[in-house]
Amino acid sequence: MSDAAQIQAIVKDFVLAEFLEGEDPSELKDDTELVTTGILDSLATLKLVTYIEEQFEVEIDADEADETHLNTLADIVRLIQSKR
């Protein structure tokens, strides 16, 4: 598995378990909008950022915890990769 695919899988599992309990995993696609559909609100975003920081040992700046950087799984993977 490539680095990106591995990151994607870990983040996807977390989002499904924390915020989309019971969802069919195939519904959560790479480009599913998370922030602009309300799947991630500000508290959920905070949780996700904390998880990413611990899991991947990266630091997310406060001004990156937003719609531009975290709206889709693809965005999140890009953000994490840019830190490593």
Partner: peptide, 22 residues
């Protein structure tokens, strides 16, 4: 069950985001 993602999107198209069920 319905897809949660589809449901959230359905609500977000009709309600302000703060009203979309968590």
């Amino acid at each position: 069950r319905l897809s949660l993602i589809a449901l959230k999107r359905f609500c977000a198209e009709r309600l302000p985001l703060y009203m979309v069920p968590d």
